[in-house]
Design a protein around this nucleic acid. Sequence first.
DNA 1: CGTCGAATTGATGTCATTCAACTACAGTGG
DNA 2: CCACTGTAGTTGAATGACATCAATTCGACG
Lengths: 201, 201
Amino acid sequence: MKKIFIENLEQTRFFSYMINKGGLTPENLYQLRDYFHFRSVPTNSYLLQAGEICRYIFFVEEGLLINQTLNEKGQERIIHIAPENWILTDRSSLYFSEPSEFFIKSIEDSIVVYLHEDYNRHATELSSVYGCFVNDSLQRNIYTQEKRIQSLLSMTAKERYLAFLERYPDTTQRIPQWMIASYLGITPESLSRVRREIAGE
Amino acid sequence: MKKIFIENLEQTRFFSYMINKGGLTPENLYQLRDYFHFRSVPTNSYLLQAGEICRYIFFVEEGLLINQTLNEKGQERIIHIAPENWILTDRSSLYFSEPSEFFIKSIEDSIVVYLHEDYNRHATELSSVYGCFVNDSLQRNIYTQEKRIQSLLSMTAKERYLAFLERYPDTTQRIPQWMIASYLGITPESLSRVRREIAGE
DNA sequence: CGTCGAATTGATGTCATTCAACTACAGTGG
DNA sequence: CCACTGTAGTTGAATGACATCAATTCGACG
């Protein structure tokens, strides 16, 4: 988890994202320079441990992060999967400064941008467009969660797996199968059977 | 769904909520008078139909609203249940002006405050505290959805029902059982069996 | 080559669904 | 006032989906 120096900031996914989606300018980003830094993160590093207070928003420049939790019975559950260009954090821990119930961990050698908790506030002050973007993201986040709840309420394991494949078409083969199973809320064995069924169609 | 006139605005649940939780003052609320109105809503009225664009945020002054959707197979699913003091809307339809996939409907004779889509914006201009409150609500919303996803991923029907009872202790007996079943993602028959089991403990 | 974890496969169990029958009750019209 | 109807809820038996447990295979890595 070494802090690293990036030669061409402007060529990073992070910059493209913030400029194209967030509506910031390169100048804005240089002004925000104190509120983010790049880190190199080897496989299986924990960026956040349950019990800690989450202080950062993580942007995946390269690699793959997951967000997991342990339920009462002690088994782990994958909550989110974040490949390149995704943002991951524990909003409630970050926002309310409460101990997190989640782990955030890398499952590939990754490069992660750590966004300081004040990044969004400062960026919004620099650009009102960015403020709207943050709001948009929250709304969209709620919407996708709504969708996921619906899928858990009314789809079978097979249907959910097919939906997963559509959602993460390129990423699927980078994720161990048992993690996908966990994300879908089924056992690895069940997923294996589902896959066999699909293959023979 | 008659527009109604309220004698003592200050004694409404809506005012208490906006003042105590939202940080607005009574004066603020009178200034916002154009952006909300009360309606009397008989049982089984639709406040929003799938396909429409949602234009309001609904605050339940009295009664009981639900938010439901039809899945691909044509069966209805209860997504949210909102008794007094709750807020209900289709955020993505409201925010992105897209046709809604949801129905919002009263299941008791109710009094509902219709908040105009610009209410939040204007209220935020009047009071920055309110702006924080809106943000808080979004964050909290995300958090509770996260919780619900986890419960769907790892709890049995019985456990989810018990959790439901804790969450809506006073409201349970006002909601038909088959709706609770739908909210929990199980069939009415299963819920009936779960209840019998619990009763005999 | 041996080890370890991931993935597959089979046998069996559990939980919830489905379908059907039955009860209870509320509303309607004769 | 009573029969008729429709809806919610309960119950039972059969079925289906997924879990669990155990055995085996596969592949990566030291």
